[in-house]
Design a protein around this nucleic acid. Sequence first.
DNA 1: TGCGTAACCGGAGGCGGCCTCCGTATAGTT
DNA 2: AACTATACGGAGGCCGCCTCCGGTTACGCA
Lengths: 197, 197
Amino acid sequence: MGQQGATTTARPLRADAARNREKLLSAAREMFDEAGTDASLEEIARRAGVGVGTLYRNFPTRIELIEAVYRHNVDELCASGARLAESLEPRAAFEAWLLEFVAYAGSKRGLAGALRSALGDDASHVFADVHDRLTSSGDALLHAAQADGGIRDDVETMDVLRAVSGVCMAAPDWRDPAKTQRALRIVLDGLRYRPAD
Amino acid sequence: MGQQGATTTARPLRADAARNREKLLSAAREMFDEAGTDASLEEIARRAGVGVGTLYRNFPTRIELIEAVYRHNVDELCASGARLAESLEPRAAFEAWLLEFVAYAGSKRGLAGALRSALGDDASHVFADVHDRLTSSGDALLHAAQADGGIRDDVETMDVLRAVSGVCMAAPDWRDPAKTQRALRIVLDGLRYRPAD
DNA sequence: TGCGTAACCGGAGGCGGCCTCCGTATAGTT
DNA sequence: AACTATACGGAGGCCGCCTCCGGTTACGCA
Protein backbone atom coordinates (compact mmCIF):
# COMPACT_ATOMS: atom_id res chain seq x y z
CA MET A 1 0.00 0.00 0.00
CA GLY A 2 2.34 2.66 -1.29
CA GLN A 3 3.50 5.04 1.37
CA GLN A 4 5.06 7.74 -0.69
CA GLY A 5 2.05 8.90 -2.64
CA ALA A 6 2.88 11.88 -4.80
CA THR A 7 5.66 13.43 -2.77
CA THR A 8 8.91 12.00 -4.12
CA THR A 9 9.83 10.98 -7.60
CA ALA A 10 13.12 9.77 -6.14
CA ARG A 11 14.68 6.36 -6.25
CA PRO A 12 12.88 3.79 -4.13
CA LEU A 13 14.10 3.24 -0.61
CA ARG A 14 16.70 0.67 0.10
CA ALA A 15 15.26 -2.54 1.52
CA ASP A 16 16.31 -2.00 5.13
CA ALA A 17 15.25 1.61 5.00
CA ALA A 18 11.76 0.68 3.86
CA ARG A 19 11.52 -1.91 6.61
CA ASN A 20 12.52 0.58 9.25
CA ARG A 21 10.14 3.17 7.98
CA GLU A 22 7.31 0.70 8.32
CA LYS A 23 8.36 -0.28 11.83
CA LEU A 24 8.45 3.36 12.82
CA LEU A 25 5.04 4.01 11.40
CA SER A 26 3.41 1.20 13.28
CA ALA A 27 5.20 2.04 16.52
CA ALA A 28 4.08 5.63 16.12
CA ARG A 29 0.55 4.55 15.55
CA GLU A 30 0.57 2.55 18.75
CA MET A 31 2.07 5.33 20.78
CA PHE A 32 -0.19 8.05 19.44
CA ASP A 33 -3.07 5.80 20.33
CA GLU A 34 -1.88 5.31 23.87
CA ALA A 35 -0.34 8.61 24.73
CA GLY A 36 -1.68 11.13 22.28
CA THR A 37 0.15 13.01 19.60
CA ASP A 38 2.82 14.35 21.86
CA ALA A 39 4.18 11.02 22.84
CA SER A 40 7.94 10.83 23.10
CA LEU A 41 9.64 10.42 19.76
CA GLU A 42 12.55 8.66 21.39
CA GLU A 43 10.19 6.13 22.88
CA ILE A 44 8.67 5.57 19.47
CA ALA A 45 12.08 4.92 17.99
CA ARG A 46 12.92 2.63 20.90
CA ARG A 47 9.71 0.68 20.44
CA ALA A 48 10.39 0.38 16.74
CA GLY A 49 13.80 -1.04 17.58
CA VAL A 50 15.55 1.74 15.75
CA GLY A 51 17.78 4.67 16.63
CA VAL A 52 16.37 8.16 16.90
CA GLY A 53 18.54 9.18 14.01
CA THR A 54 16.57 6.89 11.76
CA LEU A 55 13.33 8.36 12.96
CA TYR A 56 14.45 11.88 12.23
CA ARG A 57 15.77 10.95 8.83
CA ASN A 58 12.41 9.58 7.82
CA PHE A 59 10.30 12.20 9.56
CA PRO A 60 12.30 15.37 10.09
CA THR A 61 9.57 16.92 12.17
CA ARG A 62 7.02 15.51 14.55
CA ILE A 63 4.21 16.83 12.44
CA GLU A 64 5.42 14.91 9.45
CA LEU A 65 5.24 11.71 11.42
CA ILE A 66 1.76 12.53 12.59
CA GLU A 67 0.68 13.27 9.08
CA ALA A 68 2.14 10.02 7.83
CA VAL A 69 0.29 8.05 10.47
CA TYR A 70 -2.90 9.86 9.65
CA ARG A 71 -2.56 9.07 5.98
CA HIS A 72 -1.59 5.52 6.78
CA ASN A 73 -4.78 5.05 8.77
CA VAL A 74 -6.83 6.31 5.89
CA ASP A 75 -5.02 3.96 3.54
CA GLU A 76 -5.88 1.01 5.70
CA LEU A 77 -9.45 2.10 5.98
CA CYS A 78 -9.79 2.27 2.22
CA ALA A 79 -8.06 -1.04 1.69
CA SER A 80 -10.27 -2.67 4.24
CA GLY A 81 -13.25 -1.26 2.40
CA ALA A 82 -12.25 -3.08 -0.73
CA ARG A 83 -11.70 -6.27 1.21
CA LEU A 84 -15.07 -6.07 2.92
CA ALA A 85 -16.82 -5.49 -0.38
CA GLU A 86 -15.63 -8.87 -1.55
CA SER A 87 -16.28 -10.92 1.55
CA LEU A 88 -19.65 -9.66 2.72
CA GLU A 89 -22.93 -8.80 1.17
CA PRO A 90 -23.39 -5.11 0.38
CA ARG A 91 -25.17 -3.76 3.44
CA ALA A 92 -23.14 -5.81 5.86
CA ALA A 93 -19.97 -4.67 4.16
CA PHE A 94 -20.93 -1.04 4.49
CA GLU A 95 -21.85 -1.45 8.14
CA ALA A 96 -18.62 -3.24 8.88
CA TRP A 97 -16.74 -0.48 7.19
CA LEU A 98 -18.46 2.12 9.32
CA LEU A 99 -17.43 0.19 12.39
CA GLU A 100 -13.85 0.50 11.32
CA PHE A 101 -14.34 4.10 10.55
CA VAL A 102 -15.22 4.64 14.17
CA ALA A 103 -11.87 3.31 15.24
CA TYR A 104 -10.24 5.53 12.68
CA ALA A 105 -12.22 8.51 13.88
CA GLY A 106 -10.86 7.84 17.32
CA SER A 107 -7.29 8.15 16.20
CA LYS A 108 -8.24 10.97 13.91
CA ARG A 109 -9.47 12.89 16.90
CA GLY A 110 -6.02 13.62 18.16
CA LEU A 111 -4.29 13.54 14.83
CA ALA A 112 -6.52 15.95 13.03
CA GLY A 113 -6.34 18.32 15.95
CA ALA A 114 -2.57 18.27 16.08
CA LEU A 115 -2.33 18.73 12.35
CA ARG A 116 -4.66 21.65 12.30
CA SER A 117 -2.94 23.49 15.09
CA ALA A 118 0.52 22.81 13.74
CA LEU A 119 -0.02 23.47 10.08
CA GLY A 120 -2.47 26.27 10.64
CA ASP A 121 -4.79 26.57 7.72
CA ASP A 122 -2.24 25.11 5.35
CA ALA A 123 -3.57 21.79 6.50
CA SER A 124 -6.24 21.96 3.86
CA HIS A 125 -4.23 19.94 1.35
CA VAL A 126 -4.04 17.01 3.71
CA PHE A 127 -7.70 17.17 4.55
CA ALA A 128 -8.83 17.55 0.97
CA ASP A 129 -6.82 14.53 -0.01
CA VAL A 130 -8.20 12.45 2.83
CA HIS A 131 -11.69 13.64 2.13
CA ASP A 132 -11.49 12.52 -1.47
CA ARG A 133 -10.13 9.10 -0.77
CA LEU A 134 -12.65 8.52 1.97
CA THR A 135 -15.49 9.58 -0.25
CA SER A 136 -14.57 7.41 -3.18
CA SER A 137 -13.90 4.42 -0.99
CA GLY A 138 -17.16 4.87 0.88
CA ASP A 139 -19.12 5.54 -2.27
CA ALA A 140 -18.24 2.16 -3.69
CA LEU A 141 -19.64 0.41 -0.65
CA LEU A 142 -22.61 2.65 -0.20
CA HIS A 143 -23.76 2.57 -3.79
CA ALA A 144 -23.51 -1.19 -3.88
CA ALA A 145 -25.62 -1.42 -0.76
CA GLN A 146 -28.10 1.03 -2.16
CA ALA A 147 -28.37 -0.83 -5.46
CA ASP A 148 -28.88 -4.00 -3.51
CA GLY A 149 -31.76 -2.37 -1.68
CA GLY A 150 -30.25 -2.72 1.77
CA ILE A 151 -29.80 0.98 2.39
CA ARG A 152 -31.93 3.98 1.58
CA ASP A 153 -31.12 5.97 -1.52
CA ASP A 154 -31.32 9.48 -0.19
CA VAL A 155 -28.00 9.65 1.62
CA GLU A 156 -24.43 10.16 0.56
CA THR A 157 -21.22 8.85 2.01
CA MET A 158 -20.26 12.06 3.70
CA ASP A 159 -23.68 12.39 5.30
CA VAL A 160 -23.19 9.03 6.90
CA LEU A 161 -19.63 9.65 7.98
CA ARG A 162 -20.58 12.94 9.52
CA ALA A 163 -23.39 11.32 11.42
CA VAL A 164 -21.18 8.51 12.59
CA SER A 165 -18.32 10.67 13.67
CA GLY A 166 -20.80 12.95 15.36
CA VAL A 167 -21.94 10.01 17.42
CA CYS A 168 -18.38 9.19 18.42
CA MET A 169 -17.35 12.69 19.29
CA ALA A 170 -20.44 13.23 21.34
CA ALA A 171 -19.99 10.02 23.28
CA PRO A 172 -17.70 10.77 26.22
CA ASP A 173 -15.94 7.42 26.17
CA TRP A 174 -15.82 6.46 22.53
CA ARG A 175 -13.02 4.05 23.36
CA ASP A 176 -15.50 1.65 24.86
CA PRO A 177 -16.44 -0.43 21.82
CA ALA A 178 -19.71 -1.65 23.34
CA LYS A 179 -21.07 1.81 23.88
CA THR A 180 -20.04 3.18 20.56
CA GLN A 181 -21.45 0.18 18.80
CA ARG A 182 -24.77 0.68 20.48
CA ALA A 183 -24.78 4.30 19.45
CA LEU A 184 -23.69 3.37 15.99
CA ARG A 185 -26.50 0.86 15.76
CA ILE A 186 -28.97 3.67 15.83
CA VAL A 187 -27.41 5.32 12.85
CA LEU A 188 -27.18 2.05 10.99
CA ASP A 189 -30.83 1.31 11.55
CA GLY A 190 -31.66 4.78 10.40
CA LEU A 191 -29.96 3.95 7.14
CA ARG A 192 -32.34 1.12 6.42
CA TYR A 193 -35.45 3.21 6.64
CA ARG A 194 -36.80 4.04 3.20
CA PRO A 195 -38.79 7.20 2.79
CA ALA A 196 -42.07 6.73 0.94
CA ASP A 197 -41.38 7.63 -2.66
CA MET B 1 -12.57 39.87 41.00
CA GLY B 2 -11.73 37.03 43.35
CA GLN B 3 -9.48 34.46 41.86
CA GLN B 4 -10.15 31.62 44.21
CA GLY B 5 -13.78 31.01 43.38
CA ALA B 6 -15.12 27.94 45.09
CA THR B 7 -11.90 26.00 45.44
CA THR B 8 -10.34 27.17 48.69
CA THR B 9 -11.89 28.59 51.79
CA ALA B 10 -8.33 29.26 52.98
CA ARG B 11 -6.72 32.34 54.42
CA PRO B 12 -6.01 35.17 51.98
CA LEU B 13 -2.62 35.25 50.29
CA ARG B 14 0.20 37.18 51.79
CA ALA B 15 0.77 40.55 50.11
CA ASP B 16 3.90 39.59 48.18
CA ALA B 17 2.37 36.30 47.16
CA ALA B 18 -0.66 38.02 45.70
CA ARG B 19 1.59 40.41 43.82
CA ASN B 20 3.61 37.56 42.35
CA ARG B 21 0.55 35.63 41.41
CA GLU B 22 -0.66 38.61 39.47
CA LYS B 23 2.68 39.08 37.74
CA LEU B 24 2.66 35.43 36.74
CA LEU B 25 -0.82 35.65 35.40
CA SER B 26 -0.07 38.58 33.17
CA ALA B 27 3.21 37.13 31.97
CA ALA B 28 1.40 33.90 31.16
CA ARG B 29 -1.22 35.76 29.27
CA GLU B 30 1.42 37.45 27.16
CA MET B 31 3.26 34.26 26.45
CA PHE B 32 0.19 32.21 25.64
CA ASP B 33 -0.72 34.93 23.23
CA GLU B 34 2.64 34.86 21.53
CA ALA B 35 3.60 31.23 21.65
CA GLY B 36 0.45 29.28 22.33
CA THR B 37 -0.50 27.28 25.34
CA ASP B 38 2.63 25.21 25.41
CA ALA B 39 4.95 28.09 25.90
CA SER B 40 7.81 27.45 28.28
CA LEU B 41 6.80 27.76 31.92
CA GLU B 42 10.32 28.73 32.86
CA GLU B 43 10.19 31.57 30.40
CA ILE B 44 6.92 32.71 31.88
CA ALA B 45 8.43 32.74 35.35
CA ARG B 46 11.47 34.56 34.03
CA ARG B 47 9.33 37.16 32.33
CA ALA B 48 7.33 37.63 35.50
CA GLY B 49 10.58 38.25 37.36
CA VAL B 50 9.96 35.30 39.63
CA GLY B 51 11.50 31.92 40.30
CA VAL B 52 10.01 28.78 38.80
CA GLY B 53 9.31 27.56 42.30
CA THR B 54 6.86 30.37 42.76
CA LEU B 55 5.13 29.52 39.55
CA TYR B 56 4.68 25.91 40.51
CA ARG B 57 3.47 26.84 43.97
CA ASN B 58 0.71 28.94 42.51
CA PHE B 59 -0.13 26.68 39.62
CA PRO B 60 0.96 23.13 40.29
CA THR B 61 0.13 22.05 36.79
CA ARG B 62 0.28 23.79 33.47
CA ILE B 63 -3.41 23.27 32.94
CA GLU B 64 -4.20 25.14 36.11
CA LEU B 65 -2.30 28.11 34.84
CA ILE B 66 -4.10 27.98 31.54
CA GLU B 67 -7.41 27.79 33.27
CA ALA B 68 -6.56 30.73 35.48
CA VAL B 69 -5.60 32.84 32.48
CA TYR B 70 -8.77 31.86 30.72
CA ARG B 71 -10.89 32.86 33.69
CA HIS B 72 -8.89 36.00 34.09
CA ASN B 73 -9.63 37.01 30.52
CA VAL B 74 -13.31 36.48 31.06
CA ASP B 75 -13.16 38.53 34.22
CA GLU B 76 -11.63 41.41 32.38
CA LEU B 77 -14.13 41.16 29.61
CA CYS B 78 -16.99 41.37 32.07
CA ALA B 79 -15.45 44.23 33.97
CA SER B 80 -14.87 46.12 30.78
CA GLY B 81 -18.51 45.58 29.92
CA ALA B 82 -19.59 47.35 33.04
CA ARG B 83 -17.16 50.19 32.36
CA LEU B 84 -18.36 50.64 28.79
CA ALA B 85 -21.97 50.71 29.90
CA GLU B 86 -21.22 53.81 31.92
CA SER B 87 -19.12 55.71 29.47
CA LEU B 88 -20.91 55.17 26.16
CA GLU B 89 -24.43 55.20 24.91
CA PRO B 90 -26.09 51.79 24.79
CA ARG B 91 -25.49 50.66 21.23
CA ALA B 92 -21.97 51.98 21.08
CA ALA B 93 -21.22 50.30 24.37
CA PHE B 94 -22.43 46.97 23.11
CA GLU B 95 -20.45 47.28 19.92
CA ALA B 96 -17.32 48.23 21.77
CA TRP B 97 -17.79 45.26 24.00
CA LEU B 98 -18.05 42.95 21.03
CA LEU B 99 -14.82 44.35 19.72
CA GLU B 100 -13.15 43.33 22.93
CA PHE B 101 -14.80 39.98 22.76
CA VAL B 102 -13.01 39.37 19.52
CA ALA B 103 -9.67 39.78 21.20
CA TYR B 104 -10.84 37.46 23.92
CA ALA B 105 -12.05 34.92 21.40
CA GLY B 106 -8.58 34.97 19.90
CA SER B 107 -6.95 33.94 23.13
CA LYS B 108 -9.80 31.60 23.88
CA ARG B 109 -9.02 29.76 20.71
CA GLY B 110 -5.94 28.13 22.11
CA LEU B 111 -7.00 28.11 25.71
CA ALA B 112 -10.32 26.44 25.26
CA GLY B 113 -8.71 23.84 23.08
CA ALA B 114 -6.00 23.06 25.56
CA LEU B 115 -8.49 22.88 28.38
CA ARG B 116 -10.77 20.55 26.55
CA SER B 117 -8.06 18.14 25.54
CA ALA B 118 -6.44 18.14 28.95
CA LEU B 119 -9.47 17.98 31.17
CA GLY B 120 -11.42 15.78 28.83
CA ASP B 121 -15.05 16.29 29.38
CA ASP B 122 -14.56 17.32 32.96
CA ALA B 123 -13.99 20.72 31.50
CA SER B 124 -17.70 21.35 31.48
CA HIS B 125 -17.66 23.10 34.83
CA VAL B 126 -15.23 25.66 33.53
CA PHE B 127 -17.20 26.25 30.39
CA ALA B 128 -20.54 26.43 32.14
CA ASP B 129 -19.17 29.01 34.52
CA VAL B 130 -17.70 31.07 31.74
CA HIS B 131 -20.86 30.79 29.71
CA ASP B 132 -22.96 32.12 32.57
CA ARG B 133 -20.76 35.05 33.31
CA LEU B 134 -20.50 35.98 29.68
CA THR B 135 -24.23 35.79 29.22
CA SER B 136 -25.14 37.92 32.17
CA SER B 137 -22.51 40.49 31.35
CA GLY B 138 -23.59 40.65 27.72
CA ASP B 139 -27.26 40.70 28.57
CA ALA B 140 -26.89 43.88 30.53
CA LEU B 141 -25.38 45.67 27.55
CA LEU B 142 -27.62 44.13 24.97
CA HIS B 143 -30.87 44.75 26.77
CA ALA B 144 -29.95 48.34 27.38
CA ALA B 145 -29.21 48.79 23.70
CA GLN B 146 -32.44 47.10 22.75
CA ALA B 147 -34.48 49.21 25.12
CA ASP B 148 -32.80 52.25 23.69
CA GLY B 149 -33.87 51.17 20.23
CA GLY B 150 -30.37 50.89 18.81
CA ILE B 151 -30.45 47.15 18.33
CA ARG B 152 -33.14 44.77 17.15
CA ASP B 153 -35.14 42.90 19.75
CA ASP B 154 -35.10 39.42 18.31
CA VAL B 155 -31.58 38.39 19.26
CA GLU B 156 -29.97 37.18 22.42
CA THR B 157 -26.47 37.62 23.72
CA MET B 158 -25.32 34.16 22.83
CA ASP B 159 -26.65 34.48 19.31
CA VAL B 160 -24.49 37.49 18.83
CA LEU B 161 -21.43 36.00 20.45
CA ARG B 162 -21.71 32.90 18.36
CA ALA B 163 -22.00 34.93 15.22
CA VAL B 164 -19.05 37.08 16.17
CA SER B 165 -16.79 34.24 17.15
CA GLY B 166 -17.82 32.45 14.03
CA VAL B 167 -16.59 35.39 12.04
CA CYS B 168 -13.26 35.35 13.83
CA MET B 169 -12.67 31.65 13.62
CA ALA B 170 -13.50 31.60 9.96
CA ALA B 171 -11.17 34.47 9.18
CA PRO B 172 -7.72 33.01 8.58
CA ASP B 173 -5.85 35.88 10.15
CA TRP B 174 -8.06 37.06 12.93
CA ARG B 175 -5.03 38.67 14.50
CA ASP B 176 -5.16 41.48 12.00
CA PRO B 177 -7.42 43.97 13.74
CA ALA B 178 -8.38 45.76 10.53
CA LYS B 179 -9.69 42.68 8.84
CA THR B 180 -11.58 41.38 11.81
CA GLN B 181 -13.13 44.76 12.39
CA ARG B 182 -14.35 44.86 8.84
CA ALA B 183 -15.86 41.42 9.22
CA LEU B 184 -17.29 42.38 12.55
CA ARG B 185 -18.85 45.48 11.03
CA ILE B 186 -21.13 43.27 8.99
CA VAL B 187 -22.47 41.57 12.06
CA LEU B 188 -22.88 44.87 13.85
CA ASP B 189 -24.86 46.32 10.99
CA GLY B 190 -26.97 43.22 10.94
CA LEU B 191 -27.88 43.93 14.51
CA ARG B 192 -29.42 47.27 13.66
CA TYR B 193 -31.84 45.90 11.16
CA ARG B 194 -35.33 45.65 12.62
CA PRO B 195 -37.65 43.05 11.22
CA ALA B 196 -41.12 44.37 10.32
CA ASP B 197 -43.37 43.58 13.29
C1' DT C 1 31.57 -14.35 -6.34
C1' DG C 2 33.86 -10.54 -4.58
C1' DC C 3 34.50 -5.48 -4.37
C1' DG C 4 33.46 -0.47 -4.08
C1' DT C 5 30.57 2.95 -2.72
C1' DA C 6 26.41 5.42 -2.05
C1' DA C 7 22.91 4.95 1.15
C1' DC C 8 21.71 4.12 5.61
C1' DC C 9 22.17 3.17 10.70
C1' DG C 10 22.34 4.52 15.52
C1' DG C 11 23.48 6.68 19.61
C1' DA C 12 26.42 10.10 22.02
C1' DG C 13 26.04 14.69 23.23
C1' DG C 14 24.52 19.57 23.75
C1' DC C 15 20.52 22.13 24.83
C1' DG C 16 16.48 23.39 27.04
C1' DG C 17 12.17 22.43 29.47
C1' DC C 18 9.88 20.04 33.50
C1' DC C 19 9.35 19.71 38.29
C1' DT C 20 11.10 19.08 43.25
C1' DC C 21 13.35 20.28 47.24
C1' DC C 22 15.13 22.99 50.79
C1' DG C 23 17.98 26.79 52.71
C1' DT C 24 16.93 31.65 52.99
C1' DA C 25 14.07 35.84 53.30
C1' DT C 26 10.13 38.42 54.73
C1' DA C 27 5.20 39.86 56.03
C1' DG C 28 2.36 39.99 59.65
C1' DT C 29 1.67 39.34 64.65
C1' DT C 30 2.22 40.07 69.75
C1' DA D 1 12.05 43.85 68.55
C1' DA D 2 11.48 39.21 68.24
C1' DC D 3 9.12 35.34 66.48
C1' DT D 4 7.02 32.21 63.09
C1' DA D 5 4.09 30.89 59.46
C1' DT D 6 4.41 31.74 54.84
C1' DA D 7 6.53 32.48 50.65
C1' DC D 8 10.76 32.94 47.65
C1' DG D 9 14.01 31.21 44.17
C1' DG D 10 17.20 28.58 41.85
C1' DA D 11 20.22 24.45 41.82
C1' DG D 12 19.82 19.90 40.36
C1' DG D 13 18.07 15.51 38.46
C1' DC D 14 15.59 13.82 34.78
C1' DC D 15 13.89 13.50 30.19
C1' DG D 16 12.80 14.73 25.54
C1' DC D 17 14.40 17.23 21.33
C1' DC D 18 17.40 17.26 17.51
C1' DT D 19 22.12 17.10 15.18
C1' DC D 20 26.14 15.08 13.70
C1' DC D 21 29.31 11.76 12.12
C1' DG D 22 32.04 7.26 12.47
C1' DG D 23 30.63 2.78 11.46
C1' DT D 24 27.71 -0.60 8.81
C1' DT D 25 25.21 -2.58 4.97
C1' DA D 26 22.67 -3.32 0.66
C1' DC D 27 23.11 -3.23 -4.05
C1' DG D 28 25.29 -2.56 -8.73
C1' DC D 29 29.01 -4.03 -11.39
C1' DA D 30 32.95 -6.74 -13.00
